[in-house]
Nucleic acid binder design. Structure first.
Length: 270
DNA sequence: TACTCTGTTGAATA
DNA sequence: TTATTCAACAGAGT
């Protein structure tokens, strides 16, 4: 589920815990989500610490605690965050629970492709430094995009959209949404875009990120009715623009949906 | 039963 | 060597 806006929504689910102490930490310490992380150290660092705030960057999140500890969370394919009333015991997939006086902050992840990590001491964690510019930031310039498209000139544009170093936070549905809104076949080679197409990609990807953050990211409300996302997982979905039966296939290793009429003109996959 | 999946990684391949 | 594709991870839903 979680792409840019979904991650932002889940990050806010822990806002109610800001300013409160973590009384105890419950975990499933042997689960895959803790790979590479010392769970005992994590429990020790967070127990008795106060949750100060959080930041998001693409699909990554950082939660800051008093005493200098930072908890990094990536939701993977099926991770979620929620706040529960106190007294709940962890469910099968609730791999980390931060117990506070008024609530419990829960990380749940059935498939465990997500990841939890800890940094202690003051300063920015090593894994939170040198992050690429977010799509909606001023540093995400047309020039930067053009350079990166040229570097990956032989790969499909869809693969470039899924590259977290270039479009942090963009995932499968957002990539398909962007390609559909700019009316370009997702298998188009990155190096084949002319200047106008590059500009379209830049402008539309920023607009889609902003709009998704304002809807899904705030309260899980629906993005605009005419977006492709609403037809994306329908078995026989039709293009919101022209009603054509949507085509689907695997591009850049991922399920991809596109309209064969308004997104034609590029090389076919395979 | 068999096949799907909104993600990332490291190995295999071109 | 460099860039891209693929299999693996693990569980739930169809």
């Amino acid at each position: 589920m979680p792409e840019l806006a979904e991650v932002e929504y889940f990050r806010r689910q822990w806002d109610s815990g800001f300013g409160s102490l973590v009384i105890a930490v419950a975990s499933h310490p042997k689960m895959r989500v803790f790979r590479g992380t010392d769970v005992a150290a994590l429990q020790k660092a967070l127990t008795g610490a106060r949750l100060l705030g959080s930041e998001g960057h693409g699909k990554q999140m950082l939660f800051r605690f008093s005493g200098g500890a930072s908890l990094g969370i990536h939701l993977g394919m099926s991770g979620r965050l929620r706040a529960e009333a106190t007294g709940m015991s962890p469910g099968k997939h609730d791999h980390l629970m931060l117990l506070q006086e008024q609530r419990s902050l829960v990380y749940c992840d059935p498939r465990m492709f997500g990841r939890l990590r800890l940094a202690v001491g003051n300063g920015v964690p090593e894994w939170w430094r040198n992050l690429p510019p977010t799509v909606i930031s001023p540093a995400f310039t047309r020039t930067l995009l053009a350079e990166q498209l040229m570097r990956r000139r032989r790969s499909p544009v869809k693969a470039a959209l899924l590259d977290q170093d270039l479009f942090p936070g963009v995932g499968n549905w957002m990539a398909d949404e962007i390609m559909w809104q700019i009316k370009m076949h997702p298998a188009t080679r990155a190096g084949d875009l002319n200047v106008l197409q590059q500009h379209d990609l830049w402008r539309v990807s920023r607009r889609i990120c902003r709009t998704a953050l304002k809807t899904i990211g705030v309260d899980w409300s629906e993005p605009p009715k005419n977006w492709l996302i609403h037809r994306h997982w329908q078995k026989r979905g039709r293009c919101p623009r022209d009603g054509t039966l949507l085509d689907h296939g695997t591009i850049a290793g991922r399920t991809t949906v596109w309209c064969p009429v308004c997104q034609k003109g590029a090389a076919q996959p395979g």
